[in-house]
Design a protein around this nucleic acid. Structure first.
Lengths: 191, 191
DNA sequence: CACCTTATTGACCGATTCGGTCAATAGTTT
DNA sequence: AAACTATTGACCGAATCGGTCAATAAGGTG
């Protein structure tokens, strides 16, 4: 009887989606139950309370991201774009496990509910994943900070537009590489 | 007695902010009243109902954007970046009137409430403001679509990061021009 | 088939919040 | 102080909130 696991999976997905969309306070258990296509009573049966479900989801999210990035194996790459691609792919592979995880992670920073603030970890920022990168290949005539910002705006825009649901990580990364190739071509010195 | 106008102004600001944050259904009149620092009764006294306030805000938003873009005077510019700058500045000047307007406009697309869908206009897309632009100055070796996407991702990122509250439009545009200069330098043919 | 176990639900609870009303109050002008 | 306007606290019935529980539906096993 693996019906239980599927119901549970749907509750988790719906929970991430709803909490990401409306925050802790403005999300009702009824919302999640309806989104999951499951009775409200079942959610309380599994998680005891709204708090219980939220705590579970938050830990689930933290564990997933931590585990995923712990195995990040791109730190040996010194080329900026190779590192960016490796990091983006690692992140995408994590988020692919659950499409709503990404929205949920974005919503944590905006949720003003004390319950969320108390739980929230001091955000795993991306900067530490870019230590020891070789910046000397960037063009000299253009301010480096601006190029970096442009690159990260593009990454954010790409990941936001990317349709993660229907395509696999490999395809998405192939498309992403086309953009980094353009950026590399225009931002790196010519030689 | 212009106290009335200030209270009204605060209700409008708070209304935009709250509706943008949580959508129509998940926003309570109490939320708006608290955010505006005003009693709930006053809101009903001015606007009659939650519907009434929302309709007023929606029309206010539509009128503001329509009026603002009607006077857009950059259509004669054929250079892509000059047109982009002119369009961005026009948009910024509109949004500067009310900081919450921008968030509100973004939220309209996401609000699934039927009340919002019924009211919502068919979004004033930016594409028609880029007719007749000269694309021949872009480099030949790079796919044009990718460059365009990159440029618009950067615009979105910039406008999202920009702190509209403390600085005036002129300063923000000066900073924006630094970025378009970088993009122009790397995406235009050299001559 | 009957029997047992597990998964799931509809109906319900008291408490809170919802949109909305209204008589009373505070502030300003004359 | 009288008159008027702006604003509010207290309150309404209805809806929704988080949460409970007995009943049921749905396998698995003999």
């Amino acid at each position: 009887m693996q019906k239980k696991e599927e119901s549970n999976r749907r509750i988790i997905d719906a929970g991430f989606k709803c909490f990401a969309l409306n925050g802790y306070k403005k999300t009702s258990v009824d919302d999640i139950a309806q989104s999951a296509g499951v009775s409200k009573a079942l959610i309380f049966h599994y998680y005891g309370s709204k708090d219980g479900l939220y705590s579970y989801l938050l830990n689930y999210y933290i564990d997933t991201v931590t585990d995923g990035l712990q195995s990040f194996d791109g730190l040996y790459k010194t080329d900026f774009f190779e590192r960016l691609e490796a990091f983006s792919e690692a992140k995408l592979r994590i988020l692919q496990k659950n499409a709503a995880l990404f929205d949920f992670s974005m919503s944590l920073a905006n949720d003003k509910d004390q319950k969320v603030i108390d739980f929230s970890q001091p955000g795993s920022d991306a900067s530490k994943y870019f230590d020891g990168v070789d910046m000397s290949r960037f063009k000299d005539g253009i301010e480096l900070d601006y190029m970096i910002k442009i690159i990260f705006w593009c990454s954010a825009g790409f990941i936001k537009d990317a349709d993660m649901s229907k395509s696999n990580v490999g395809d998405v990364m192939k498309e992403f590489k086309k953009f980094t190739d353009v950026l590399k071509k225009v931002f790196y010195k010519e030689n």
